[in-house]
Nucleic acid binder design. Structure first.
Length: 212
DNA sequence: AAGTATCT
DNA sequence: CGTT
């Protein structure tokens, strides 16, 4: 059946423990973007500094009990926004629900994120390949939601120098990785300029983690 | 090094 | 290469 073939083509296994769920978040994308606006009103996007002193091209904020931060002191999770001293905005129920459903679809039932890093990419913004290794329990997966402008996702291997696959990720796509793929090096190529109906000239990424 | 520059 |  054509519909089944289409549905099949929307899911791609990258490696054992790593899946691209094409369009998985499309239906809730408007609700997610409303949530992002509310979060940014309370905890504005800001370009953090790496421990090496370079300003990141991606602007970030967080919601949930913990938020990922970086500054001269290093990479870590913080329960308060360093800009305001107040707790990060609560994780909207629609965020948590989407993350849990995506994790379950990828074989990680029971995922309960306590942190959501919100990344804002403008044209030229990028994320150099890295591992997500600041979380306490590496047995918990990562759920990454793409909204707005399409991007090129770089999917590497267990070592920094491993070759990277280049995957186009579009509005509503969700990537989930865990288990044997949990420490895979990954990144985002410099964002190409463009316009998208829901987010204008930007890409928004929501990355859900169990941090604490 | 979740950063960049520079060379083959 | 270096406010890792």
């Amino acid at each position: 059946m054509i519909a089944d073939l289409f549905a099949e083509s929307r899911t791609l296994t990258l490696d054992p423990g790593a899946m691209l769920l094409g369009g998985f978040a499309l239906g809730v994308a408007p609700a997610l973007l409303e949530g992002v606006a509310a979060i940014a009103a309370a905890a504005p996007f800001r370009q953090m500094a790496t421990p090496g002193g370079r300003r990141m091209s991606v602007a970030m904020t967080n919601c949930g009990a913990a938020g990922w931060v970086t500054d001269a002191a290093g990479y870590r999770y913080a329960t308060a926004d360093p800009l305001s001293g107040r707790p990060w905005p609560a994780m909207p129920p629609a965020f948590r629900d989407l993350a849990r459903r995506a994790a379950t679809a990828a074989g990680f039932a029971g995922f309960d994120p306590d942190a959501c890093l919100v990344n804002l990419y403008r044209p030229g913004a990028r994320m150099a390949p890295h591992q997500d290794i600041d979380e306490r329990d590496m047995g918990e997966p990562i759920v990454s939601v793409s909204l707005g402008l399409s991007a090129t996702f770089l999917w590497g291997g267990a070592a920094r120098g491993d070759p990277k696959r280049r995957l186009r990720i579009d509005h509503g796509d969700v990537l989930v990785w865990g288990g044997p793929a949990r420490r895979t090096f990954h990144g985002i190529a410099p964002l190409a300029a463009g316009t998208q109906p829901d987010t204008g000239e930007t890409r928004i990424n929501l990355t859900f983690r169990r941090a604490l």
